[in-house]
Write a protein that binds this DNA or RNA. Structure first.
Lengths: 232, 232
DNA sequence: CCTACCGATCGGTAGG
DNA sequence: CCTACCGATCGGTAGG
């Protein structure tokens, strides 16, 4: 936790620097310095949290590149500009870091998908809009946290990890599940099989997606159209 | 390699046992004994190779249960009834063991899928028959090697491993790819998107498949039917 | 010299 | 946040 650092910074900002001990001032200076160094080269200037908010992004990048098991805490620390043991100052374990990322990521995309669906003019349109956002979030230059979250939907091995993100995942997928349940189908259609096919096929798009090819919107529309009207 | 053992066994089988030296006979007996012990409790009586042919099955089980990284050579050795170091007598590395399994597995299912497709009465029927075998091979009580091979089609992380099985995988998936290319479609259909959707959805079935639910045949037919004629 | 292993240990790295 | 480490386990290899 960074309570101490925040308290120090609040004191400094309020112009009461003269109340700080020499040791406190030294800690503060170092924190602000490394803080600025950290933000160099990153996209946004999220001015609060410092490394606490940078570590999940860094970790998400690496988890998405190499997988959970082959990413070491040393890898994460190194890319974040920290020494190996220091990551544990912010996160109690590698698993906690992973879960924090997914809680955040699933909440974010869930809100985005929900909002997109509500703009639809009919059930089919809503589904296409939702899937466009769903697919768009896991490819291209989406934020690392959302990309990793999307990729984790396709995680097949590592049951322990799967089970732990399951609650967040389920809350998210229920949004899309509901949209499929709302579709007007022929009576002999298997709604369950439709859901499994469409959702799993969507979750896999990031594997074959290439920038410059079909856009997430085109992919979403194409898949829904195929399943709606058939190809024969 | 077991060339010496095979040579001895060939001599023994040909009824020329009296030509064997005492030492040779002792080696042969020991080989046959441990061989029989190994085969106890396993399905088939593949009578050559001994542990060399049992290790891939054992390893495939573990790789399918826990994933490549979380399966140690000690785990594999332990389940096969060997001491940790002894696996290296048969396979130079964990990776070589993994690749051997996949070469064998993909060759086997490729032949099965091809044979099934050739019994079809029309392109759609051939595709359903092929996918039935494809899905059936990765679920239920299929041999561990085939099950792992099927699961590996859904591997998303661990790029190094993916790249190394890619040639076998491609040869296999090309069979199904060709069946999809042979389908008579409406002219405005996107054959590539159909292939990606259908193949990826199939490769995912083992995740939600449950014994006692839909059979592989019903799943294959259901998915193809949906994409052929639509659900609306 | 070979085979089919064994008991013990190697250099490194994991999460903490 | 760093320095200095730990208990354990990893894939792989030594001599016999």
């Amino acid at each position: 936790m960074e309570i101490a650092a925040k308290r120090l910074k609040a004191l400094a900002d309020s112009g009461k620097g003269e109340q700080l001990s020499e040791n406190q001032q030294k800690l503060l200076d170092r924190n602000l310095l490394t803080h600025d160094l950290q933000l160099k080269g990153t996209v946004a200037g999220n001015s609060e949290g410092g490394r606490r908010s940078i570590l999940p992004n860094t970790a998400a990048e690496l988890f998405a590149e190499k997988g959970f098991d082959r990413t070491s805490m040393r890898d994460i620390a190194s890319r974040a500009g920290l020494l190996p043991g220091s990551v544990y100052h912010y996160f109690a374990s590698k698993t906690e870091l992973f879960l924090t990322i997914h809680q955040d990521g699933f909440n974010t995309v869930r809100a985005q998908v929900k909002a997109a669906a509500e703009e639809g003019t009919d059930p089919w349109d809503s589904l296409v809009r939702a899937l466009s956002v769903h697919i768009g979030g896991m490819v291209g230059d989406s934020p690392p946290i959302q990309r990793l979250t999307g990729h984790s939907l396709a995680m097949t091995d590592h049951p322990e990890l799967r089970d732990q993100i399951q609650p967040y995942r389920e809350a998210y997928e229920n949004i899309i599940r509901q949209l499929i349940d709302d579709l007007p189908l022929r009576q002999d259609s298997d709604r369950t099989l439709l859901r499994l096919t469409l959702l799993r096929a969507s979750n896999w798009v990031f594997i074959w997606y290439r920038a410059g090819g079909m856009t997430p919107q085109e992919i979403a529309w194409g898949m829904v159209e195929m399943l709606r009207n058939g190809v024969a």
